[in-house]
Amino acid sequence: LQLFIKTLTGKTFTVEMEPSDTIENLKAKIQDKEGIPPDQQRLIFAGKQLEDGRTLSDYNIQKESTLHLVL
């Protein structure tokens, strides 16, 4: 599923993930694309901070959802 990642600077980029992927996987993918170390990434969806060990489906993140990346 394609997700939109929006940064505080207003930049938006996309990543391609599976619902079974963990937040950790997502942070690694963001590191590949943007060079931001996972330990500096905080991801927010629907007002909640996402925890590394959980999956996208745990948070009911669907295709074309927008996640906010806070550094």
Rank of each mutant, 00 (worst) to 15 (best):
L1V: 07
L1S: 05
L1W: 15
Q2E: 08
Q2D: 07
L3H: 01
L3N: 00
I5V: 10
K6Q: 15
K6S: 15
K6D: 05
K6R: 15
T7I: 09
T7C: 04
T7M: 09
L8K: 09
L8V: 11
T9N: 10
T9H: 11
T9F: 11
T9V: 15
G10F: 05
G10T: 03
G10C: 03
G10L: 05
K11H: 10
T12W: 08
F13V: 06
F13G: 01
F13T: 03
T14G: 06
V15S: 01
V15D: 00
V15C: 03
E16F: 15
E16M: 11
E16Y: 15
M17I: 11
M17H: 04
E18L: 12
E18D: 13
E18R: 15
P19Q: 07
P19F: 08
P19A: 11
S20A: 15
S20H: 10
D21Y: 03
D21W: 04
D21T: 06
T22A: 05
T22G: 04
T22N: 05
I23S: 02
I23D: 00
E24G: 12
E24A: 11
L26G: 00
L26I: 10
A28P: 01
A28T: 12
A28M: 15
K29N: 05
K29D: 03
K29H: 07
Q31L: 09
K33D: 04
K33W: 09
E34N: 07
I36G: 02
I36A: 04
P37C: 04
P37M: 06
P37W: 05
P38S: 13
P38I: 09
D39R: 14
D39H: 10
D39K: 07
D39E: 12
Q41K: 01
R42L: 13
L43Q: 00
L43A: 01
I44S: 09
I44T: 06
I44P: 00
F45T: 02
F45N: 02
A46C: 04
G47P: 01
K48R: 13
K48P: 01
K48E: 12
Q49G: 06
Q49S: 07
Q49R: 13
Q49E: 15
L50K: 00
L50P: 01
E51T: 07
D52K: 05
G53F: 09
G53V: 15
G53E: 07
T55V: 15
T55D: 03
S57Q: 15
D58A: 05
D58T: 05
Y59Q: 03
N60D: 13
I61F: 06
I61M: 12
Q62T: 15
K63C: 04
K63M: 09
K63R: 14
E64M: 09
S65F: 07
L67N: 02
L67F: 04
L67Q: 02
H68A: 10
H68T: 08
H68S: 06
H68W: 06
L69M: 06
L69I: 06
L69P: 00
V70W: 14
V70T: 07
L71C: 04
L71I: 12
